[in-house]
Computed example of a mutant assay.
Amino acid sequence: MRRENPFLITLAGFAGLLFLSPVLYSLWMSFQSSHGFYTGTVQFTLSNYVRAVGQHDFFRYLLNSIIVSAAVTILGLLFATMAAFTFARFEFRGGKLLFAATVATLMIPSHVTLIPNYLTLARVGLLDTYSGLILPAIANGFAAFFLRQYIRGIPRSLDEAAYMDGATPLQVLRRIIVPISRPAIYSMGLFIFLAEWNNYIWPLVAVNDDQLYTLQIGLSRLYKLNPGEGLIDWPLVMAASVITMLPVIAGFMLVERHLVRGITMGAVK
Rank of each mutant, 00 (worst) to 15 (best):
6 P>T: 09
8 L>Q: 04
9 I>Q: 09
9 I>G: 02
9 I>A: 05
9 I>R: 10
9 I>T: 12
10 T>R: 12
10 T>F: 12
10 T>K: 06
10 T>C: 07
10 T>M: 10
10 T>I: 05
11 L>C: 08
11 L>P: 06
11 L>S: 12
12 A>L: 07
12 A>G: 08
12 A>C: 06
12 A>R: 12
13 G>A: 09
13 G>I: 06
15 A>Y: 03
15 A>Q: 08
16 G>M: 13
16 G>N: 07
17 L>D: 11
17 L>Y: 10
17 L>T: 10
17 L>V: 13
18 L>I: 12
18 L>H: 03
18 L>G: 15
18 L>C: 13
18 L>Y: 14
18 L>T: 15
18 L>P: 03
18 L>D: 07
19 F>I: 14
19 F>P: 00
19 F>M: 14
19 F>D: 00
19 F>L: 15
19 F>Q: 11
19 F>R: 05
20 L>A: 12
20 L>R: 07
20 L>F: 11
21 S>P: 01
21 S>N: 06
22 P>S: 12
22 P>M: 10
22 P>I: 13
22 P>V: 12
22 P>Y: 08
23 V>S: 14
24 L>K: 00
24 L>Q: 04
24 L>N: 00
24 L>C: 02
24 L>H: 05
25 Y>D: 04
25 Y>I: 12
26 S>P: 03
26 S>V: 09
26 S>G: 08
27 L>N: 03
27 L>K: 08
27 L>W: 07
28 W>P: 01
28 W>E: 06
28 W>Q: 11
28 W>N: 02
28 W>C: 06
29 M>N: 07
30 S>V: 02
31 F>K: 01
31 F>W: 08
32 Q>F: 15
32 Q>K: 14
33 S>G: 12
33 S>D: 11
33 S>R: 10
33 S>Q: 05
34 S>Y: 00
34 S>H: 04
34 S>P: 01
35 H>Q: 05
35 H>N: 04
36 G>N: 11
36 G>V: 11
36 G>T: 05
36 G>W: 03
37 F>E: 00
37 F>R: 03
37 F>P: 00
38 Y>S: 04
38 Y>Q: 01
38 Y>P: 09
38 Y>K: 04
38 Y>W: 13
39 T>K: 14
39 T>C: 07
40 G>H: 15
41 T>F: 11
43 Q>F: 08
43 Q>D: 13
43 Q>C: 13
43 Q>A: 12
44 F>V: 07
44 F>G: 01
44 F>D: 04
44 F>E: 03
44 F>P: 00
44 F>N: 01
44 F>Q: 00
44 F>L: 15
45 T>Y: 07
45 T>F: 09
46 L>S: 09
46 L>F: 13
47 S>H: 07
47 S>V: 08
47 S>I: 06
47 S>K: 02
47 S>T: 10
47 S>L: 03
47 S>E: 01
47 S>C: 02
47 S>F: 05
48 N>H: 08
48 N>A: 02
48 N>F: 04
48 N>K: 04
48 N>I: 00
49 Y>T: 11
49 Y>W: 06
49 Y>K: 04
49 Y>N: 05
49 Y>R: 04
50 V>T: 13
50 V>Y: 08
50 V>L: 10
51 R>Q: 12
51 R>D: 11
52 A>M: 02
52 A>G: 05
52 A>F: 02
